[in-house]
Simulated assay, not measured.
Amino acid sequence: PVLSSELTADSELLYRRSISERVGALAPFLALDGDPYPIITDGRITWAIDGYTTATTYPSAQFVTIAGVPATSGLAGREVNYLHAAVKATVDAETGETHLYRMDDGDDPVLDVWAGIYPELLESLDQFPDTLRSLVRYPADLWAVQSTLLGRYHVDSAEQLFNGTGRWAVSAAAATTVGEPTTSPAPSVDQFTVLAGNADGFASVRPLGPGSASNPTSTRDELAALAVADHDLAGGIHLRVAAVGPDALPLLSPQVAQSAIDADPEIARAITLLNANGSKVQFGPMTPVLAGARLVWVRAIIVTGTGSSPAPRLFGVAAVSDGAVAVEDTAGAAIAALTGA
């Protein structure tokens, strides 16, 4: 750079280009989320990332070893007994201008200490731009931890909590390729869904099944509840508990829904033909949809090539409810074929 003729008196050097590196240099006391995301408003791109305060000495709190978050997360592999989504940081994609907004109302004792050390660093929630306010999402790494703990702490009596009756665990994930065994917990799915009351909103949804072990494959193959994290800035967590009659069949878990797709004769024949001769079949996210009083699992069927530059193609969208399967060109058409709506 010293010898370059491209540099002028107005040139600027950007030393810290990544979002995590830039925010981490300003606030090294925060554990940063592993997945920064862009927000597009008024023709500009603003990156957003969540920052967490943590502790291992918080009184009367359960320890948890954090798993199920990206390896790039500042929380990966850590054991804590206090975790709070304390800060949302924004970085302008063009100028690099960075802001750190405090998300609480002064009820985070860990952040209070750091705010006293760096009094000019954090801005209040009132200063968060309205153009970004409606487009931020629920902290992803925090949700991975909370949705796991919900299985134990959703009960409302001390006896149930002590005995472990009524415990849930995150359901096992459905395989993403044909015949693939899976032992991982089901990931969250971002979708428009019904939140509290009748309000529609954008949220992250994760299925829970009956069971108490940390291994998702040990849960029973039925759905106990859908855990919903509202992406609205003032939103929270909701539980939609599966309610079925005494003579009704249990609601399908993601793995059972996938088994129904795999066992459908027409789909099986199509997959056999498509999953050969230079192509392979993969599945999109297993997405729960509430169609009236019915739960429908919806999943895209995608065909990709096996070459170095595969081009994915949507074969169809499968919908599963009560063991019945329909495949159509769109999710709406597949759901309508099952429900008659």
Rank of each mutant, 00 (worst) to 15 (best):
A260P: 00
P246S: 05
E222S: 15
V256K: 09
A224T: 07
E266F: 07
L226A: 11
V244I: 13
A257Q: 05
A225G: 04
D247T: 07
D264I: 04
V256Q: 08
A229Q: 10
A234C: 05
P265Y: 13
P250Q: 09
R269D: 15
P246M: 11
D230R: 03
H238T: 09
P250F: 01
I261N: 06
D221H: 13
Q255K: 11
I267Y: 06
L251F: 02
R240Q: 10
L233E: 12
A268D: 14
R240P: 00
H238A: 12
G245D: 14
S259A: 13
P250R: 05
A260H: 06
E266H: 05
P254I: 05
H238V: 09
P246A: 06
P250C: 07
A263F: 05
E222V: 01
D232L: 12
A225D: 02
L252R: 00
V228H: 03
L251P: 03
A268C: 05
S253M: 14
L239G: 05
V241L: 07
A268N: 13
A248P: 11
R269W: 05
G236C: 11
L251I: 02
E222L: 11
D230K: 04
P246C: 03
A263I: 08
P246F: 08
A227W: 01
G235C: 07
H231K: 14
A224F: 02
G245P: 10
D262A: 11
R269A: 15
D264V: 04
L249I: 00
V241A: 03
A242S: 14
A257M: 10
D221C: 10
R240W: 01
I261P: 03
L251N: 06
G235T: 08
L252A: 01
V256I: 13
A263H: 10
Q255V: 15
D221S: 15
A248Q: 14
D247Y: 12
G236I: 11
A260W: 00
E222D: 15
D221R: 15
S259W: 01
R269V: 13
L251V: 02
A227G: 06
P254L: 10
A268I: 07
V228T: 08
H231F: 03
D230N: 12
R240D: 12
L226V: 06
L226K: 04
Q258G: 11
L252C: 00
L249W: 00
I261H: 03
Q255P: 11
L252W: 00
P265H: 13
D230I: 04
A243R: 14
Q255G: 06
P254S: 09
A248H: 06
A224Q: 09
A224D: 09
P265T: 04
A227P: 04
A224Y: 03
V241W: 00
L223M: 08
I267G: 03
L239N: 07
R240T: 02
I237T: 10
